[in-house]
Design a protein around this nucleic acid. Sequence first.
DNA 1: GAAACAATTTGACCGTCAGTCAATTTTCGA
DNA 2: TCGAAAATTGACTGACGGTCAAATTGTTTC
Lengths: 243, 243
Amino acid sequence: MLPQTQSRKDRERKAREELIVDHARRLLLSHGFQGFSLDDLARSIEYSKGTIYQHFESKEDLALAVATSALKERADLFERAARFQGKSRERARAIGFACCHFMVAYPDYFHVEMMMKSQSFWEKASEERRRQNAMQAGRTFRSMLEVVHAGFEAGDLSRERLSAEEIAIAMASVTVGSHIMSHVPEMRLLAGIDDSIRIVRQNQDLLLDGMGWKSLLADFDYAATDLRIRSEIFPEATWFQTP
Amino acid sequence: MLPQTQSRKDRERKAREELIVDHARRLLLSHGFQGFSLDDLARSIEYSKGTIYQHFESKEDLALAVATSALKERADLFERAARFQGKSRERARAIGFACCHFMVAYPDYFHVEMMMKSQSFWEKASEERRRQNAMQAGRTFRSMLEVVHAGFEAGDLSRERLSAEEIAIAMASVTVGSHIMSHVPEMRLLAGIDDSIRIVRQNQDLLLDGMGWKSLLADFDYAATDLRIRSEIFPEATWFQTP
DNA sequence: GAAACAATTTGACCGTCAGTCAATTTTCGA
DNA sequence: TCGAAAATTGACTGACGGTCAAATTGTTTC
């Protein structure tokens, strides 16, 4: 068997895996994990169910592949954001911007992430797929750490109180939590929320201020920074409104 | 039919509903939503599946009843915490304490809450059950609002920047988010987390500081407050460690 | 106390769906 | 062109949520 042939097969296999993941994403987002059936997916991709199982060892494994493909895009956004030329807090702000941009670009991906937090999900996915997911998660985390260390080095952020990891966790926590809470229908009602993104960004700001990450919101007008972030890093962002 | 008889039947019905919810809680927490089967539950309570459906109109409806029963306990904790005699930020701290206490008392309830965020869950539950859940959620939210307003009135917290609802949402967001992130295995690995509760409380502190909710952590030693919260409000808390 | 009637409980049964695997079709080197 | 190996298929299985006619239990009436 020629290497040429082997590689063509590899390419075909990869292409089909992408086909499956693409269709699975659509079905998963529109019907949720429970609501989406592999029979429907098989019909949609015009292959049999058996063929799907050539690529994925369970429904969970496939869903994790979908989740990881989205996480990869998020990691790309984070790396772009971390490269923003500016003061450390501006770069942290760019990462917050990246989160919001992702939120808007994949509004239903939220449910996929929720699904992944449920126990018994991970144990049904393959080792390899879990590894790939962890790798993309690592990329997002490293982007945050990079900016935190920049803050340390510039003296914008105290090294004494919290470790870089604790700060990164805090940034991730407030973002995830705000995203979730601002989407809970009861909360939207109780608190009269109309704009989820505003809530997320506001809470990110509060947290970074709480860490004493300079320049504090009270000492600096970030309007110009936001415009630069948008034009330089996320020109495709359509949601961003100047206040 | 005598009223006496009717009320005995009502009591029996209520008792059985509690029996079902209690067993469902155990199965739900140990196997997760997908993993727990109504046939198992029927066997466990020694009634048939049909009888379960006399009380709950779907598996989701039953799971929501379990969730609401736990949420009620949380609301109880929040109301106790809000009653703490002290400065507004100390009372906010007591609510944070209540969250952590709940986290420790129901370590697996986390997964139940995650399940509830997934789409298509709510629409399969009954109107009445959703209403009860919203009521308990309202109690927790009102406890937070009460403390926020106390902060406004005492001048510990600025009325200008954020609304009471926005502040309450922020408190809830950082807590939920920190809880989730500090339980994600990858995060624990990447950030070297060993103590989830410390992370949650730390992030709560950062956020309240970020809002400028006096007294800031830098200006006041909350160690004595924590001891009082523990002894006065949560004497049953076994997890609390003095630093 | 028995019969008639009402309410409750039951579990066999249904449709659906994740996952399997023997049979079939396609691929590809000889 | 042929035959072996690889890929594909879809009927089948078991499990599960949900239903409902039949059986059982409880209540009222005479």
